[in-house]
């Protein structure tokens, strides 16, 4: 227990993961400090979601070691249910329990796992619903919520377990564009409250504004990492530049046709850049 505070919240050493013959993670070394917000970006298939899922042991790593809150997840004898209580996970597809009301979505694990009484569980649940701005939705079923509301309820569900670390797996990728903002606002508030967060995302503006560190992954390895203004503003690696140019200015790529051969300069002169994306 005494070492927990000094160790990073998440520590990953030489992590490998294969699905059959397909090598998805090829030796990842990585850590997230206490209270740090780390955004993991990269093209689809780069292994960033797999990395996140390995942290919570939703995927069994092929090799390498992972510690979360000072406990080794990769220890074969790890009490996985116990460690997971300290880790919140937010999925791209929300994964709210459709047969339970929003309130019961937030209380069921508190009651079954933390053995809290109904009154206390509901008190915690309502406090967290307030935190995500869903006070009036406690008694509805998830199907009656919009995507953005569902995701916020899912975040509140995780928070109700009072985790030390929150993992976000592309939390806004399944949302209509106009609903993304609400979810990101909740996440930003969470970051400001000092939550340790590891966020796999395509929201570059969020990464730029909220992350303490941005990690760029491609082909199963960490290509580069650093403060957002460095990785996003002045990427050192060619692969990072080409990815950013595709994400930030997709129309130009469409005009060029050949997507894989990115041009030298990420900011092509003469093309208007969306203000939101200017770094």
């Amino acid at each position: 227990m005494t070492t927990t505070a000094s160790r990073p919240a998440i520590e990953i050493r030489d992590l490998h993961k294969s699905f059959g013959p397909l090598q998805v993670l090829k030796g990842i070394d990585f850590e997230v400090g206490q209270g740090e917000v780390v955004c993991v970006i990269g093209p689809s298939g780069s292994g960033k979601s797999t990395l996140l899922r390995c942290v919570d042991l939703l995927e069994e790593p092929t090799a390498g070691r992972i510690w979360v809150n000072g406990v080794e997840m990769t220890d074969p004898d790890v009490e996985v249910d116990a460690v997971r209580r300290g880790i919140g996970m937010v999925f791209q597809s929300f994964n709210l329990f459709p047969h339970l009301t929003v309130l019961n979505n937030l209380t069921i694990a508190q009651r079954r796992v933390l053995r809290r009484g109904r009154a206390e569980a509901e008190r915690v649940a309502r406090a967290n619903l307030e935190r995500v701005g869903l006070t009036d939705k406690a008694d509805v079923f998830p199907a009656q919520l919009s995507g953005g509301q569902q995701q916020r309820a899912a975040i509140a569900r995780s928070l109700s377990m009072e985790p030390k670390v929150m993992l976000f797996d592309e939390p806004t990728s399944a949302l209509d564009p106009e609903l993304v903002g609400d979810v990101l606002t909740v996440m930003r508030k969470l970051a400001e409250d000092g939550m340790t967060m590891m966020v796999v995302t395509h929201e570059m503006a969020f990464a730029r504004d909220v992350a303490d560190r941005v990690v760029f992954m491609d082909g199963g390895v960490v290509v580069e990492q650093g403060p957002p203004q460095e990785v996003l503003g002045a990427p050192k690696h060619e692969r990072t530049r080409s990815f950013l140019s595709r994400v930030l200015d997709p129309t130009r790529v469409a005009q060029l046709g050949q997507t894989d051969q990115a041009p030298e300069a990420p900011e092509a002169p003469g093309l208007p850049a969306d203000d939101r994306h200017r770094l």
Partner: peptide, 22 residues
């Protein structure tokens, strides 16, 4: 959906509890 089991497990439920309640 597989995500239901995953969500339940990430909340710290055992496989059995997740099966029974979710």
């Amino acid at each position: 959906p597989k995500g239901q089991m995953e969500a339940a497990r990430t909340l710290g439920m055992s496989h059995f509890t997740a099966m029974r309640t979710i």
